[in-house]
Design a protein around this nucleic acid. Structure first.
Lengths: 244, 244
DNA sequence: GTTGCACGGTCTTGTATAAGACACAAGACC
DNA sequence: GGTCTTGTGTCTTATACAAGACCGTGCAAC
């Protein structure tokens, strides 16, 4: 029986959510694993089934767990499928989601720029790893991208990415190799003109309009874990947003 | 007592949600009005309080109602506040949401273009109203915008917009004058170069990169009710997206 | 007499509990 | 290959209490 309850002002179902969240983040419950059945878990936590279900519903909404009637409740696998569906909003003109191919063009480590430090909530000059990628959509080079990662969170950057190709499985890799579970992101969109370098990379005229996407990604604990700046050639693709 | 239940395969709380949704859309419950208290409504519909609450929670998530502990449940007012907060995603560099000012530059009616017809699910050549606007952010002209509305849904286009200025209150107007409740939208984003006309309007160089926003808005019944094409000058502003 | 305000009472939604019927999935058994 | 059993999540109901908001009463101060 836990010490939940009154001193903590938050509703019980929020406290339960936090406890379960912690079990997932800490690795006590591993990716893809089934968690205990509802009655069992409710008994263990000393709350009613209804309260537990409410907490589980919130975790499901955040994509941390998946529930299947008749089978059980599972910790989400950060599959490439899922990560792409959640975070990659690019469609072709037919409205079909596309899968990007990725080609790494450079990996470096150095002190954070002021902007990187601000966006990633680092102290000025803290080390960041940077990965530059070219990404292809439907066979054509369409995205120029730089990813900045706090070096403190990714010691040694033990990424198997020296080879030229790496899928969008970076998030999967984050989770498996560094215990970081990505759950949300903020993106700022604007328009920019292609530099010479970008034009060469993307095969478009210098000065062509590109969609500039600046994304900060957060993990389950709310920490910023990635700054990603992408330049998308929108001659054949769109960035899709649904507003509810 | 209604004829809910078994023949309809959907869960009861979904059926209840649909009933309440209909009461709001039909105007039986008017904007800003309080709806009956939970016990009363549950009794009237012949369902338990818990089931009713679940339906109300879903309506609240769709911003159709607002619930306040101790006071009651109210049909949402499509206030300019709310409509802007939900649909207008533009921020300045400090991250602060900005309110646009609007200046109408033209209103016309004519047959829909193929693209308009497709996006608004109209038959080819059906009539649409078009409103052209210039919008200012923090005092500067930043957005060139064209709005296309199915004429069938907006008979006569009885808008009080002959004068040059009209706030972002178009959605409020939709609701009050035409009984259309806007609840969701899909946006496609891309980058485009400013034409001469746009450059003149926005005070930017010809060919400058603009963020092109194509939005289709849907009402509570799921009908497309508006196609809006905006060109945003992102020299001083950003389009913000949150991914959960 | 009038104003101001504290106190209760009563209405509302929010939280938490419990219990049973149901639907789906998987494996055991025949 | 069917059928049964068991274990799971899903739906629905019912009840109780907590917490916020509102309103009127009635006392106190002026």
């Amino acid at each position: 029986m836990n010490e939940l309850r009154r001193p903590d002002a938050r509703p019980l179902y929020v406290q339960v959510e936090a406890i379960l969240n912690e079990r997932i983040v800490s690795g006590e419950w591993k990716s893809g694993q089934a968690i205990p059945a509802e009655p069992e878990l409710a008994a263990e936590l000393g709350v009613s089934a209804g309260t537990l279900r409410r907490a589980l519903a919130r975790l499901e909404q955040r994509h941390l767990i998946e529930r299947r009637q008749g089978r059980g409740t599972y910790v989400s696998q950060q599959t490439s499928q899922q990560a792409l569906g959640l975070f990659f909003r690019v469609r072709n003109f037919a409205g079909k989601p596309v899968r990007p191919e990725s080609f790494i063009t450079g990996v470096t480590t150095g002190p954070a720029t002021p902007e990187e430090a601000a966006r990633l909530r680092l102290s000025p000059g803290e080390a960041v790893h940077r990965i530059d990628r070219r990404r292809h959509l439907e066979g054509e080079p369409r995205i120029a991208e730089r990813i900045a990662l706090p070096a403190a969170l990714f010691p040694g950057l033990s990424l198997p990415l020296a080879p030229k190709q790496l899928g969008a499985e970076i998030y999967v890799h984050y989770r498996n190799a560094h215990g970081i579970i990505v759950v949300s992101a903020e993106e700022d969109l604007s328009a920019a003109s292609a530099t010479e370098e970008e034009a060469a990379l993307l095969g478009c005229p210098v000065g062509a309009p590109l969609l500039l996407i600046e994304r900060v990604t957060f993990d389950a604990a709310g920490r910023p874990v990635e700054l990603r700046v992408s330049r998308l050639d929108t001659r054949a693709h769109r960035y899709a947003v649904e507003i509810v």
